[in-house]
Design a protein around this nucleic acid. Structure first.
Lengths: 206, 206, 206, 206
DNA sequence: TATGAATGAGGTTTCATTCAT
DNA sequence: TATGAATGAAACCTCATTCAT
């Protein structure tokens, strides 16, 4: 194409840069909308508007609302995997109390920084269950590996089962940590921690 | 979709036999729709059609989709309360294992017979959070009373906190019991039961 | 809505005491609704509810919404005729100022006691224009007679024309008397009275 | 129907040529519908159909039936202001007869070319009274200025009061000019003109 | 007669998505 | 590529009126 531009060599770069910024803005806007209104309540029009983009722009990058949500969901999931991998990289000492505390703060902190993950993860029947399934699978795998690192005597099946249970507990911690107007939140979270500790103790040592 | 404090508008009670039958049919149809498609996915038109009623008949008794869902939700909640009250009426022996098993099977059985309760209880931001809050409160109160019956030395605050934890555990049990395509479901549920047993043991005996 | 000369169907006369009370309650409720929401905005259901009656009861006496409104309109119109006839029964002295004041206060007082008359008289195209036409005709006839009583030398055509003008003036007086938040209402009404006085002077004496 | 302070939501301005044409067609269609059936009787569906547009196109620019009506009303009001400003730009000679004739023909001619103005201006309680209030205020201000131009000795309050009265008279002229099947319309209008003349004479000279 | 239920066409509005410039 | 306009099925809800008990 004839450039029309004095600095022909740099022309493409800023455009691609702009494209990336645009996508980032769109994702951020979508994230906010999904958090505020849920998957069904959010509208493509508002997402585009919040990103300062035209509706056509949004569809240029994300062919459907579902694709947009899933891109976001995957993005958040990757970030969560990364945090779990970080945790797995630390030395395993078999200390159930410490592990419980770490898992707790990991998920709670994650939910604080990326609230859309939860909003999208249980978006009723509006999103294909495939993704949630895959994510659960990944999380459980990582949790199982983590548990085996702390208790090498666990066989794979036992580790996986313990991971399933532990993941549910982590979800419970998130639920309580963010339940609005919950009385004695601290006490409840501490008791929940105690419960996990007891369970992990039994698993790791048994 | 996004709830807003719309103060819903309650259902209008039917006064004739015919009306009572209609309402029953409408509630049944709504229940099925909500289970299949979720709150947002269900449509008033389909609900009426499934009940063999005109759309106007549906609105004769339920001024709003929200009112319909909340009527259903309340109905299910009452049934759940009743089951918990039944459990509370039985002699308390302080046996954590037995209590855990009873609670687990109670909720699982309930969810099997009334799947819409779960579907509506976490309907994202589409239903006013007030109702879910009230229901959680009632469930926790009943659970707390149950726990105190088993361990009279618990003070009220401690019982309530334990109830909060226990309720989360029950949700987890339901989630696992009905998660589609979960491998080793039995093992997972058993481990979950173990976890609750350990926790209740600590609480009841501590 | 769109009126069409449907000629509605008249109300059915109640036969028992109980029936008459019911009709009175229904009319009162309808009156209030029409005043508050206008003809289109009022609903038969709410009218019945306000009267403490069943919707079927309402339709027992008034076959359509239109019939109900027209019954009300006619009722009010009759009352207005009566007041004008009262005025006509008083001795005519040809004093324009006094006549103007009397007409003004008559209509203002009437509108205060029966606000639905105005609400229904200009119900857009939702009521058949026939009735309004008839009422205008009656009012003009009475006004013309009144004017001739004060100025016997007026021929019929002139009296009628003057009546047409005078009726418009009366509407203006009502509009100003009840316009919400009108500043200097008193001054405006006085000037309006002056205008009528000047005109009637010219007509009566010319 | 019943207005409520819904704060309407303004029309969205089109940005492309195509959009501007659409909006023009939609406004024209809406105008015709409102004239024919009144505000309540007109339907968005028919308006869109008459404009040859999809219903979605209508809502692209006008978020609400109310917004559409108010846009139209404002548009007509601006045109009326412009005509009054034109009249005000002409030299003022204090001739009551001429002024009366001009005002008369101005409003009658306006109503002939823009019948929707009247249809919407008194749309019962279906439109927020705010707009009508604002428009009355503007009209009165302009009329007051006009009167003061003709009679500089009038103080502002007096001019305003006279304007209030005069505006009512203008409405009366429109009502008579367009009342269907009115006998002796010409005579009535002439008498109405006489009345205004007498009043303006008194005001301007007094 | 009295009453509440039933009806369903039709109203307003939404929104994901496609199209044309 | 970017943008705003276009689309229309479909959602929720209303309401005058009829019907059956």
């Amino acid at each position: 194409m004839s450039s029309q531009n004095t600095s022909a060599g740099r022309m493409r770069a800023p455009q691609r840069q702009r494209g990336r910024e645009r996508v980032a803005a769109l994702l951020a806007a979508a994230d906010a909308c999904f958090v505020e209104k849920g998957y069904d309540g959010a509208t493509m029009t508002e997402i585009a508007a919040r990103a300062g983009a035209a509706i056509g722009s949004l569809y240029q990058f994300f062919p459907t609302k579902e694709a947009l949500a899933l891109a976001l969901l995957d993005d958040h999931a990757e970030a969560l995997y990364a945090r779990m991998d970080e945790l797995a990289a630390q030395p395993a000492d078999g200390d159930a109390a410490r592990l419980a505390a770490q898992l707790s703060s990991l998920l709670v902190e994650f939910r604080r920084s990326r609230p859309a993950f939860v909003a999208l993860a249980d978006a009723g029947g509006s999103l294909p269950p495939t993704h949630a399934r895959k994510i659960r699978h990944e999380l459980r795998s990582r949790l199982a590996a983590l548990l085996r690192a702390h208790a090498p005597q666990l066989d794979e099946a036992a580790a996986r089962t313990a991971a399933v249970v532990t993941l549910q507990w982590m979800k419970a911690a998130v639920a309580l940590a963010f339940e609005p107007a919950l009385r004695d939140r601290e006490a409840a979270l501490e008791q929940l921690g105690l419960a996990l500790r007891l369970y992990l103790d039994a698993v790791l040592k048994g």
